[in-house]
């Protein structure tokens, strides 16, 4: 039981990562740097509860906001480049964050333990939820509350005029600009919101695992978070959710596959790109679902 609670907790955090990549991806930008925002969220929120003794909620908000602000600041220079260059630039950003945390030392003695980001040692003893007597199941509820709120907001965004602008920028930047859409603003907005969501994921993660280090936010996490929307599909926010749920369940749920986790990710990415370059739930699938629903005269799906 505990084991499945653990798998579901990790799944929730990774759904947030997948959604953060998705938010950027629906403007046609591929980011390999969301793990950088995730790391910022994790470290900032961890410092709040473990070193400053704040409550969990402001810590999560602060971690998320810090990541979002950095996303905003990085967004401007980074979005001057696109496509392949953007992939490299965002990955470079993620690596700069990772290497910064490899060097940052900010520790205090709290309750007889050395707590805080400690360079290569990582950041240990973020034990807020366990000190306050939360059970794993209760914290799982916290994680999924966050997932539902974020997924709901992404859903609203997609149905809004702003969402249509996001898609227009993806489809054809030039045409979008001609139609009066401020392309830079849209892209920076996507990048910022992606930063917020990834930061929230990191903040939730560090309190669950009590520990984070620079190795956890390296290339494999970048690849995993990009895989979720790519495999699940770019047609709807269900894509990254489905992708993350499927891949985490496949590799965590079936223990013997654990060793081959990354090999499976790699192979699945290649196969998906060859057979379904827009993922499983792509625009065509969404269109079919919508027309099916409409033909039956039912109201539009809650999803």
């Amino acid at each position: 039981m505990d084991y499945y609670v653990a798998v579901l907790s990790i799944m929730g955090v990774h759904i947030l990562l997948g959604l953060s990549v998705y938010l950027v991806a629906i403007t046609g930008q591929l980011s390999f740097g969301q793990q950088g925002f995730y790391a910022i969220g994790a470290y900032v929120a961890g410092v709040c509860t473990a070193l400053w003794g704040t409550h969990l909620v402001p810590a999560l908000l602060l971690g998320m906001t810090a990541a979002g602000l950095i996303g905003f600041l990085v967004g401007f220079p980074t979005l001057r480049v696109k496509g392949l260059y953007l992939g490299i630039a965002t990955f470079g950003f993620g690596e700069i964050v990772r290497l910064a945390f490899l060097n940052i030392k900010y520790t205090k003695m709290v309750g007889g333990k050395l707590v805080g980001p400690n360079g290569a040692e990582g950041f240990r003893h973020v034990s807020y939820i366990y000190d306050r007597g939360f059970t794993q199941v209760q914290y799982l509820a916290v994680i999924y509350a966050a997932v539902i709120v974020v997924a709901g907001l992404v859903h609203l965004l997609e149905r809004s005029k702003l969402g249509a602008k996001f898609r227009a920028v993806e489809e054809d930047e030039m045409a979008a600009a001609m139609a009066g859409i401020n392309v830079t603003a849209v892209k920076v907005m996507a990048f910022t919101s992606g930063g917020f969501v990834a930061g929230l994921g990191g903040a939730l993660f560090v309190h669950y695992s009590t520990y984070v280090d620079h190795d956890m936010v390296a290339l494999p996490l970048a690849v995993a978070s990009v895989t979720y929307p790519m495999l699940g599909g770019l047609g709807s926010f269900w894509g990254p959710i489905l992708g993350a749920a499927f891949l985490i369940f496949l590799t965590e749920g079936l223990r013997f596959l654990q060793e081959f986790r990354l090999v499976i990710y790699g192979a699945l990415i290649i196969l998906t790109m060859i057979f379904r370059p827009r993922g499983i739930i792509d625009e065509a699938v969404m269109m079919r679902i919508r027309s099916l629903v409409r033909r039956k005269g039912a109201p539009s799906p809650a999803a």
Binding site: L30, G83, M230, L262, V263, Y265, G266, M273, I274
Partner: peptide, 14 residues
């Protein structure tokens, strides 16, 4: 455009 970027990242990890 981004498909070869993704497949080669997949291959890198693989």
């Amino acid at each position: 455009e981004l498909a070869p970027l993704m497949t080669t990242v997949g291959m890198l990890i693989l």
